[in-house]
Amino acid sequence: MPEARVIPLRPEDDESPGPPSSADWDEQLAGALEFLRGRLTGDYDTDEFGFDADLTDHVLLPALRPLFSRWFRVETQGLDNVPDTGGALVVANHSGTIPVDALMATVALHDEHPASRRLRLLGADLVFQLPVLGSMARKMGTTLACNEDAERLLGAGELVGVFPEGFKGVGKPFSERYTLQRFGRGGFVTAALRTGSPIVPCAIVGAEEIYPMIGNAKTVARLLGLPYFPITPTFPLLGLLGAVPLPSKWFIAFGEPIETASYGPAAADDPMVVFNLTDQVRETIQHSLYRLLLERRSVFS
């Protein structure tokens, strides 16, 4: 939502004649210097998961914003289905060869949700084994996808984002786009049941087309210790240029929350309840994917 501002109807009446941009840039630069001072002296807070709100707000989110609004032109729907306060589990489909969808969902909930909610993602352990990427992910608020961490975050009233398809979802071939893969062992449902948090199904359309994966170099993947090694029409053919994502048009739709509190925490140990809820979430996401695909006019507009 843009901020309300006073627009002078007759500019000659305006008291301050200087163009507004001059005040802007020096304030921005002063702000950047202040930020730099805070960073260099360690004067900022991080939480027990390693989340660095200062870095996320001043560096990481601004870096992702152009990708969000200009490149993918992300449109969000049903943001009112995400509660303003308290713990909730956002469950989304995973796609795109590189998990850009997780980052875009984070930007969407922070910038467009009225309560500016922070999405605390759960990441695969491979992410945290890699240097640089692992520590960056932690600073952005991501933590390991395990029940202990998920329950701790939900219990603290955080909004937790999870992609139950995992690598099966991100690394699936282009021909299988928009078909949901198996939803793990339903660990995310037990975490929601134990903490009584609602599950918000989330469908992301557009991420499938950013790196259409037409092949998988399994030998290279095995050599590098990765779950897959993508071959797209442009990568690795064009080298680094091939790493530029295609500018597909994105939709992120949040569905109606599925409440879990009425089952009680004991239901987490009842496999039938867990399977049923998992299926319900999976079907809801699949249906909203189909609906969004019908609404979309073309991949790039």
């Binding site: 027990e48 998961f49 390693g50 352990d125 945290f128 084994q129 692992g134 933590t143 390991l144 395990c146 202990e148 961490d149 701790r152």
Partner: peptide, 12 residues
Amino acid sequence: SPRDPAVFTESM
């Protein structure tokens, strides 16, 4: 290790 949960309770 990177495979560990972020916060340890006594029972872990």
